[in-house]
């Protein structure tokens, strides 16, 4: 498949934001993204605007916020998707097409039961939660992330294991919790841990470098098959050097750290 033939569905509902950055990020790696409202996928739109999820190659959940983040972050987005296009979404994930969720998108993937998905691709009820940050407030700052994935995740194939990247983050609910006592072990066993927060120079992350109190400093996880990635920090906000916080003082490459996430998935689809 050629890069421009890769169709990306950037899904939105009322009150979604940051979808433009997600759209631009996929544009910058040569794909053909489209902003698609859930109603267009659910047949609740004029004929010319109707879309089928199965026509797309990648599904991206932006974030931001959605539906005011009332009830819980991502809960309304997830419940609406489940009710409107649940079976289509399950089929999309089962066929191992890539799905990316950033920030509110990650919260939505967890609420949908698509992550961590230890059993089956999509659980009936959520099996994890992104809970309120330990600090009790909205955290907004650059973070250092180490790629700890051993090769399972489709979105990090072009990032060396152990490489430290800088992605900014902005959220109030990012502490990954589960009721499963073997949660962290299972994530490790299945190679589902993708990004961990680290301190400057790769040191163990303490607050504020671990901004939310996530156990084991986990910032992003994938499903067991490796095609669904959810992460709190925003790779789409650092596609060029100029949105890195240190760009005036450092002689870095033109490319921002976030580009590698999008290039990775494109490489898999276009090879």
């Amino acid at each position: 498949m050629k890069a421009e033939d890769v169709k990306v569905c950037v899904i939105r509902i009322e009150g979604t934001n940051c979808e433009d950055e997600m759209y631009q990020a996929f544009r910058m790696v040569g794909a053909s993204p489209e902003l698609v409202h859930l109603k267009q996928l659910a047949g609740k739109a004029p004929d010319h605007a109707k879309r089928n999820l199965e026509d797309y190659d990648i599904l991206a959940f932006p974030g931001g916020f959605s539906a005011g983040d009332y009830v819980r972050a991502g809960a309304i987005f997830a419940a609406r998707i489940k009710s409107d296009i649940g079976p289509q979404l399950r089929k999309f994930v089962e066929s191992e097409k890539p799905v990316l969720g950033v920030c509110n998108g990650f919260q939505t993937l967890v609420e949908l039961g698509l992550l961590p998905a230890f059993e089956g691709v999509m659980s009936e009820t959520p099996t994890a939660a992104l809970s309120t940050n330990d600090s009790g407030r909205f955290e907004c700052r650059p973070t250092y992330l180490r790629n700890d994935n051993r090769g399972n995740c489709i979105f990090t194939s072009e990032i060396k294991k152990g490489k430290i990247s800088m992605f900014p983050l902005a959220h109030a609910e990012g502490k990954l919790l589960s009721a499963d006592p073997r949660f962290l072990e299972k994530l490790e066993e299945n190679d589902q841990v993708v990004f961990r927060y680290v301190g400057p120079g790769g040191a163990k992350a303490v607050y504020p470098w671990n901004p939310n109190g996530s156990p084991s400093d986990i910032a992003g996880i994938c499903n067991p098959a490796g095609n669904v990635l959810g992460m709190m920090p925003h790779p789409e906000r650092v596609m060029t050097r100029y949105t890195h916080q240190d760009w005036t003082s450092c002689k870095g490459p033109e490319e921002g750290d976030g580009m590698a996430v999008f290039r990775s998935v494109m490489k898999k689809l276009t090879k």
């Binding site: 009830v71 819980r72 809960a75 309304i76 419940a79 489940k82 009710s83 609420e111 009820t125 959520p126 099996t127 994890a128 939660a129 809970s131 919790l177 589960s178 009721a179």
Partner: peptide, 11 residues
């Protein structure tokens, strides 16, 4: 609650 209002993991 089951469909929307509660996340059974934490609530």
């Amino acid at each position: 609650c089951r469909v929307l209002l509660a996340n059974p993991v934490i609530q």
